[in-house]
Design a protein around this nucleic acid. Structure first.
Lengths: 317, 317
DNA sequence: CTTATAAATGCTCACTTTGAGCATAAATGG
DNA sequence: CCATTTATGCTCAAAGTGAGCATTTATAAG
């Protein structure tokens, strides 16, 4: 029993806070769809995946990674539309191990490297900070209802309806921001995502709904968003995205950008206070057209003893 | 730029409820350490990892999988002590994709297949159902304190102390059952796990503390336990382990087995009730030497709309 | 200098959830 | 019949949450 060789690629979803929305690092590829920083895993050179990943990202995006965690390993045949410069045939299947990396600020990147783009260019339906996105009512929900009706049997119709209800919170159900990946997968299966048509080698279906990425990279980003939106609630992981000192409003804006909806300010602060994660520096930030806010810093040393310990997300409205 | 080939293995951590502790399926290998059901991923034969995995498990353990989810992809050099029948040299590095599978009951397995073993044979320090396990006070904590003192610099000593405190809840900190993997990794780095000595090709260090598994399989099981202990709180995943009808006490025992500590019965029920996940069948289970308990069933159709939706874990004592 | 406005921060209040434990009900085994 | 065992119902205080009003301290306009 011998193991057929497989090519292993490493992908990084590098995220930063950004001015008014969280950003993801992509590498433009001329006329082709942009891609995530990507590189082969070379077992001879790299003792661990993480070491290999850091090397590739710094090489391709001229960028040093800080916080890194493994996301998921993708390997479905048919979903890995080949990147131009990599072989992808049946003999040498490519599987890609996706990583999530968080970085303190969207530092300017040297030319030739990556570019920062807002999450919500790729996932416009995920941004509820200014209320329900129009794209849902105007395009997605009608298309989903058509897709439900198109089902071949009654049983499948019910299954499709339940799935759409759950993931998109239809018919009065609530929107669960953590289901970002589920929503992407549903849009993919229902043909609303350009990549789906591309992978089936058909003419593009609805290319205008959102921006595509190379291969299955948008799926990997959706995985990263889901992970981050979940993890923020039980690990003090937001602080990996913050500068050394920050105002509480700024922190709240970053959290709102991540979860995709507005929070109740006073309750956010009360809960944050109880965690003990931040301490005031005594310094103030002036010049924002209002009462100056105190600058805070993250206390890395707060080794919380017991249980879950993240940021409370007191939804507003 | 071409991708060096790597051999990809698939591992399943198959779990079932078991009489008095959760069970994991392992494949005995004669004189060698038992292993998880394991098989190569053959890209030519399997469109997805999951398909490949199901095939291997049914072949090796004569067992059909139900619920399956991907855990993590392991590939550190030096941690994959070779399985007898697989090549593992520098040219062809083996990486393994671990999966968690849950199954309704520990059905009897045909001979030649796998065997069920209690989680706590491999992780005796994780079972706090009857109070703090003696092995912690008697062996692990003293050894950890020695390991802390052995650090070469003061900085490292502090780092080791903080890490041990966090993961094992030393010095009055609370025990967090979800840190199962962290604890295993710490015991591994501090030399308390037989596999660590084996991987360094040294004489065995403390082989008596717990049972080993082949390769890095015990690490994969620890990953699975951590995942399950976390996920049980926000997804109705326990029910994948339950028979069609069950008493609430039985459900509670399974949950206690998973989290590793006793729960407050009345509060467990109250919380469960609010979720709406179970409904009474009207039938009773008699003959257990007390008032008969009603039999309940899981309502798969309760498509909970919004937020997190798992089992509440009201710790007792 | 005064006043409108914006932003930060403080505080209250009703309501829900949680942790703990007492009390009662319905079986089984002498 | 009575002790024992297990199931189930109910109460109560403490802690946590959701919502919103009130006050403070800046900047900008008149």
């Amino acid at each position: 029993m011998s193991i057929p060789p497989v090519a292993v690629g490493l992908n990084a979803v590098v995220m930063a806070a950004g001015e008014d929305a969280p950003q993801v690092l992509v590498v433009p590829r001329g006329k082709e769809e942009p891609a995530l920083p990507f590189g082969p895993f070379d077992p001879a050179r790299h003792r661990t995946f993480e070491i290999g990943l850091r090397e590739w990202v710094s090489e391709q995006a001229h960028f040093q990674l800080g916080y890194v965690e493994q996301l998921y390993t993708f390997g479905d045949r048919g979903r890995e539309a080949p990147l131009a410069d990599l072989p992808s045939s049946d003999e040498a299947r490519i599987i890609s191990i996706g990583y999530l990396a968080l970085t303190q600020e969207a530092a300017d990147l040297p030319s030739g490297g990556g570019e920062w783009h807002s999450w919500y260019r790729f996932f416009p339906w995920e941004d509820w900070r200014a209320g329900k996105p129009a794209i849902l009512d105007d395009q997605i929900e009608p298309a989903l209802r058509r897709w439900i009706d198109e089902a071949e049997t009654d049983g499948r119709r019910v299954a499709r309806r339940d799935r759409a209800r759950m993931t998109f919170g239809l018919d009065g159900r609530g929107w669960n921001e953590e289901r970002c990946l589920d929503r992407y997968e549903l849009l993919y299966s229902s043909g609303l995502i350009a990549e789906a048509a591309r992978d089936r080698k058909e003419a593009q279906g609805m290319p205008t709904i959102s921006r595509s990425l190379a291969s299955d990279h948008r799926r990997i980003v959706a995985t990263a968003i889901s992970r981050l939106r979940g993890k923020i609630k039980y690990r003090p992981i937001v602080f990996e995205l913050m500068p050394d000192v920050f105002t509480l409003s700024c922190l709240q804006q970053v959290v709102e950008g991540i979860v995709g909806f507005p929070l109740h300010k006073q309750n956010f602060r009360r809960a944050l206070d109880r965690t003990g994660f931040v301490e005031g520096t005594g310094r103030m930030q002036a010049g924002t057209g209002g009462r100056p806010a105190e600058l805070f810093r993250y206390r890395r040393d707060v080794l919380r003893d017991g249980q879950a310990t993240g940021i409370s997300i007191p939804r507003s409205r």
